[in-house]
Design a protein around this nucleic acid. Structure first.
Length: 294
DNA sequence: AAGAATGTCAACCGCCCGCCG
DNA sequence: GCGGCGGGCGGTTGACATTCT
């Protein structure tokens, strides 16, 4: 019976963090399950992934959610439900786990409390939100959320309910669902974007030949800008070259290890070396290396 | 001051989905 | 088509911190 290797659980130590950061920094993420062994960590691949994604990866913002972020989370939760990864995708530098915790521990109670007092009129709510908004963008978002003339499905007979369409040409997307309402991400808060949104309604429904993509259905008609990791625009060419360099670096290290191993085995006495099928294989590697085949 | 209650958040668990052989 | 595997996701737990009584 094969004994499972001991896997540590619980809080990560500083040493473990450094090992994981160093390993990913050097080799990148290639296989979460295989990574812990090579990184010298007695953790499961899942545990490593979680630690990296929720804590160690660069450009993560932690704690101190702004009023604007709170409002966005509340609205997105109302719109998308508990789809924390989708919500996190619309909040740059925030992790789904962080948002989920923040919702469960603080915002949910607040929303429930506000629902109890929901007898107040919408105009009063708007005034209150405006007063609490700390900056112009936040105030503008509130304006858009509350004042925008909400289109209904009657306005877009071409669109079926529960459909999401992304328009790659204009970097905006539209989500349609069975509630037929509309809200906006604060990423769109600018007069130019607002104009684009309005323009988009005409474009998206009348133009043909646009590159469209169907996404999962959700609760409200939704507009958003594309989301890019680490608050920067994703460039597939750069990403390809990065992957190639990481791969080459890995292959080079592998070759060095193989060479050292082969030299050691061949140099060792037959009685003390590795027996069986491995010896001829390693001897072959050694010969290839020594004759510059590799 | 001390124990209880409550809040916070990192981490785990189990399920699901997509990919691949 | 099917099963194994890796990765992603949401719900939940548990340890620790903070506040309350």
């Amino acid at each position: 019976m094969v004994r499972q290797p001991y896997l540590k659980k619980g809080t990560w130590s500083h040493d473990e963090d450094q090992k994981l950061i160093a390993y990913i920094g050097k080799y990148g993420i290639w296989n979460w399950n295989g990574m812990p062994t090579f990184a010298g960590l007695q953790r499961s691949g899942k545990s490593c992934r979680l630690r990296w994604m929720n804590y160690l990866r660069p450009n993560i913002r932690r704690g101190n959610f702004s009023r604007e972020e709170e409002e966005t989370i509340i609205h997105l939760q109302k719109t998308l439900g508990n789809r924390w990864s989708a919500i996190a995708a619309r909040l740059p530098q925030r992790t789904d786990n962080d948002i989920k915790n923040y919702w469960n521990t603080r915002l949910k109670k607040r929303v429930i409390g506000e629902k109890k007092n929901s007898s107040s009129a919408t105009t009063e709510t708007k005034t209150s939100m405006e007063e609490n908004s700390s900056d112009a963008d936040s105030s503008m978002m509130v304006d858009i959320l509350l004042d925008y003339q909400i289109p209904t499905m009657d306005d877009f007979p071409e669109l079926a309910a529960d459909t999401t369409i992304s328009l790659s040409d204009c970097d905006l997307s539209v989500v349609v669902d069975d509630h037929y309402n509309m809200a906006m991400d604060n990423n769109l808060v600018s007069s130019e974007n607002h104009w684009e949104i309005e323009n988009l309604w005409g474009q998206s429904l009348t133009m043909e030949g646009l590159d469209c993509e169907v996404m999962s259905p959700n609760s409200q008609l939704w507009l958003h800008e594309p989301i890019y990791a680490c608050d920067s625009y994703y460039d597939p060419v750069v990403d390809l070259w990065s992957a190639a360099l990481i791969f080459l670096s890995f292959m080079f290290d592998l070759l060095v290890i193989m060479e050292l191993l082969a030299l050691k085995i061949v140099a060792a006495d037959v009685e003390e070396g590795i027996h069986g099928i491995y010896r001829p294989a390693l001897t072959g590697i050694y010969h290839m290396l020594s004759t510059n085949v590799i």
